[in-house]
C-alpha cells in the first residue's frame, strides 16, 4: 500500500487535513475579504454575533470586526507556526546530525548545549526572549525557534546514532564515500519520516506558543492575532463571552487539525508501528 492510500484510510487525518485546508484558505483570502486593517473601528463595540448584518461574528471592545480579526489572525498564526518550525529544523537537524554521526567529543559538546536549552523552562525562556528583544514578528519567530529546536536535535541524533552502524552505511564507508555524502545521501533520507511527523506537531505547538505570547501582550503590535484577541477579551468575559470563545475555538481547531495530520503522517510513514497501535 502506498503512502497516500494509508493516509487516506485514517479518518481523523482526513478531517484534520480538511480543517487545515479551510484555515489556509481563510488566511489566503483575508486580504481580499477584509482589505481594511483589522484594527480599524467599524461599528459600535460589543455587537453580539449576528446582531448587525455584515458582522457575522460581532465586534469587540473597540468596535473592531471580529471576523476580520479572525481571518487576519489565521494568516499570522500559520505564518509564525511554519517559519519558526523551519528555523527550528534548520538549527536542530544539522546539530543532531553532526552529534550523532561523529559521536565522541563533538557529540558530548553539542548534546550539553542541547541539554542546556532543554533544561531552561520553555515558555519562560520564550517570554524573556521576546520581552528583551521587544515584541515583533521576527523576535517571536526567533524565540519560538530557540525553545523548540532541542527535540529535533535529539531525534535526529538518535536516528543517526542507530543508522550510522547499519551495515549499508559501513559499506558506504568501505567504498570510500565522503562523510558529507554519507550524511546527506545515506543517512539523512532515512531519518526524514520521523522528522516530518515531528515538524507537523511542532507547527501546532508553535501556534499555541505564539497565541500564548500574544495573550500575555507580547505579540507583534502591528499584526492582529488570535491570542491577542483572547487576551483583550479577558476582562470583559462576563459581558461578552463570545469575544474569547470564537478565537479560542479557532486556535483549538487549527492545532487539533495539525495534530491529526501529524498522527496520520506517522501512521502512513511508519506502517510497522501503526499496526502495533
Amino acid at each position: 500500500m502506498n503512502f497516500f492510500k494509508r493516509f487516506a484510510q485514517n479518518r481523523g487525518a482526513l478531517i484534520g487535513l480538511i480543517i487545515l485546508a479551510l484555515v489556509v484558505l481563510l488566511a489566503l483570502l483575508a486580504p481580499f475579504l477584509y482589505p481594511d486593517s483589522p484594527w480599524r473601528m467599524v461599528q459600535r463595540p460589543f455587537l453580539a454575533p449576528g446582531e448587525v448584518a455584515g458582522f457575522p461574528l460581532g465586534t469587540d471592545t473597540m468596535g473592531r470586526d471580529v471576523a476580520a480579526g479572525l481571518a487576519h489572525g489565521a494568516w499570522v498564526s500559520l505564518l509564525i507556526g511554519l517559519i519558526s518550525t523551519v528555523v527550528a529544523l534548520s538549527i536542530g537537524v544539522p546539530l543532531g546530525a553532526l552529534a550523532g554521526y561523529f559521536g565522541g567529543k563533538i557529540d558530548d559538546a553539542l548534546m550539553r548545549f542541547t541539554e542546556f536549552f532543554q533544561t531552561i523552562p520553555n515558555f519562560a525562556l520564550a517570554i524573556v526572549l521576546v520581552a528583551i528583544m521587544e515584541p515583533s514578528t521576527v523576535s517571536i519567530v526567533l524565540a519560538i525557534a530557540i525553545v523548540s529546536w532541542p527535540p529535533v536535535a535529539r531525534l535526529v541524533r538518535g536516528e543517526f546514532l542507530s543508522i550510522k552502524h547499519r551495515e549499508y552505511v559501513e559499506a558506504a564507508r568501505l567504498v570510500g564515500q565522503t562523510h558529507r555524502d554519507i550524511i546527506i545521501k545515506q543517512i539523512l533520507p532515512n531519518t526524514l519520516s520521523p522528522v516530518i511527523v515531528l515538524a507537523s506537531l511542532m507547527v501546532a505547538t508553535a501556534i499555541l506558543l505564539e497565541s500564548s505570547l500574544s495573550f500575555l501582550g507580547l505579540g507583534d503590535p502591528d499584526t492582529m492575532s488570535w491570542g491577542y484577541m483572547i487576551g483583550a477579551a479577558r476582562t470583559v468575559m462576563r459581558q461578552a463571552w463570545w469575544l474569547s470563545v470564537i478565537p479560542g475555538v479557532a486556535i483549538l481547531l487549527t492545532v487539533l487539525a495539525l495534530n491529526l495530520v501529524g498522527e496520520g503522517l506517522d501512521d502512513a510513514l511508519n506502517p510497522q508501528l501503526a499496526r502495533a497501535r
Binding site: R166, E167, Y168, V169, A171, A172, K185, Q186, P189, N190
Partner: peptide, 8 residues
C-alpha cells in the same frame, strides 16, 4: 536486511 539502504 540492514546491508542495503532502503532508499537507494
Amino acid at each position: 536486511y540492514a546491508s542495503l539502504n532502503p532508499r537507494i
